[in-house]
Design a protein around this nucleic acid. Structure first.
Lengths: 117, 117
DNA sequence: CTGGATCCTCAGGGATACTG
DNA sequence: CAGTATCCCTGAGGATCCAG
């Protein structure tokens, strides 16, 4: 980033805000599951709903909207009856791989650490 | 990890649980701020409280306890009056660096992505 | 099928006061 | 200083019904 202010802090307050932004985009009980479902292929509303155990239509709709607002899913509507809507990932979703990988690895490590003591 | 089951999924359901474990350990409004404060050096209760704008004693106490349960902070009590308690990071906290770095980088990228459209 | 509208519950977190 | 105890409020998320 452009300015550093010569601090050797682990994480500046600006950095903290960025971390929060990232976490906020993934916040909510179902977002990750939805993204992972879509990372395995484009899906329609009901297909995602069937894919994710326990999610209600209301929540799926809400989370999809937030993900779309954050450009993490793309919504394609086909003019037909009954309605056909297809959800898919975006380039931005793919950029999440590093984050998901880091969280996953640390999650496994964390569980191991906790169980060992 | 030991078994793969020959799937080429981006993220298995076991992986998702690990991601959730990671996120859970960092959940709560103040945990990251507390960790970052401590990553810049050991601190006493009141020092952390002063470091973090807006946090109440109650929340600081609660979050510190959860972090300690997750071995992300270490609590040292010195027998003295008035009481002296010092909080510090642990080896496990340091292992979080990859995660925080990934989240930070993606957070900046995310903001850039959103603002561009 | 793809959702929107409504109502309800509960846990996260704020404010304040108190104790060893 | 280092926390606890209490009370309260808001918003995330569940359940159910309705509409195009």
């Amino acid at each position: 980033m452009e300015e550093n202010h010569h601090q050797d802090k682990v994480c500046t307050s600006k950095d903290l805000l960025a971390v929060r932004d990232a976490l906020d985009a993934l916040s909510g009980k179902w977002k990750l599951e939805i993204l992972i479902s879509l990372l395995n292929g484009a899906r329609r509303f009901k297909e995602i709903a069937r894919d994710i155990d326990g999610i209600s239509d209301r929540m799926l709709s809400k989370e999809l909207k937030e993900l779309e607002a954050n450009q993490l899913v793309e919504r394609k509507m086909y003019d037909a009856f009954p309605p056909v809507v297809e959800y898919n990932t975006t380039a931005h979703t793919r950029s999440l791989h590093t984050v998901i990988y880091a969280l996953k690895e640390w999650g496994y490590l964390h569980r191991k650490t906790i169980l060992e003591n």
